[in-house]
Simulated scan of single mutants.
Amino acid sequence: MTDATGGAVLRGAVDLSALRNRPQAAAPAQAPGSLPLVFDATDESFPQVLELSRRVPVVVDLWAEWCGPCRQLSPVLEKVVTELAGRLVLAKVDVDANPQLQQAFRAQSIPMVVALVAGQPVPLFTGAVPEQQVREVFAQLLQVAAQNGVTGTVGEADADADAEAEPELPPLHAEAYAAIEAGDYDRAIAAYRSALAENPRDEEAKAGLGQVTLLARVAELDPVAARAAAAEAPLDPQAQFAVADLDVSGGHVDDAFDRLLDLFQALPTDERAPVRERLLELFGLVGDADPRVVRARGRLASLLF
Results as ranks from 00 to 15, higher is better:
Leu10Asn: 05
Pro268Asp: 04
Arg295Trp: 03
Pro274Glu: 01
Pro167Met: 08
Leu84Gly: 01
Leu88Tyr: 04
Trp66Val: 07
Gly210Glu: 02
Ser53Pro: 02
Ala18Asn: 07
Arg187Phe: 05
Gln265Val: 09
Glu166Gln: 15
Glu232Lys: 14
Arg217Asn: 11
Leu260Phe: 10
Gly287Val: 11
Ile110Glu: 06
Val286Glu: 09
Tyr177Leu: 14
Val154Arg: 02
Pro170Gly: 12
Lys206Glu: 13
Leu52Arg: 12
Glu65Ile: 10
Glu204Ser: 09
Glu281Arg: 14
Trp63Val: 00
Glu83Gly: 00
Gly86Tyr: 07
Arg297Leu: 13
Asp162Val: 14
Arg297Gly: 06
Ala27Gln: 12
Ala91Asn: 07
Val294Lys: 12
Asp262Val: 13
Gly298Cys: 06
Val14Thr: 14
Arg217Lys: 14
Pro123His: 03
Cys67Asn: 02
Arg87Thr: 09
Lys206Cys: 08
Val122Ser: 08
Val253Cys: 03
Asp186Gly: 14
Ala91Met: 00
Ser53Lys: 01
Pro291Thr: 10
Gln265Ser: 13
Gly119Pro: 07
Asp15Met: 08
Gln143Ile: 09
Phe257His: 05
Ala242Gly: 10
Leu16Trp: 10
Val137Asp: 15
Gly251Ala: 11
Leu215Asp: 03
Asp96Lys: 06
Arg54Leu: 05
Pro130Val: 12
Pro291Tyr: 06
Glu220Asn: 04
Pro36Gly: 06
Arg20Lys: 13
Asp254His: 03
Ala229Asn: 06
Val80Asp: 10
Phe138Tyr: 15
Glu203Cys: 02
Pro75Met: 10
Asp290Met: 07
Gly127Lys: 08
Asn98Thr: 11
Thr213Glu: 15
Val218Phe: 04
Phe105His: 05
Val113Trp: 00
Ala13Asn: 09
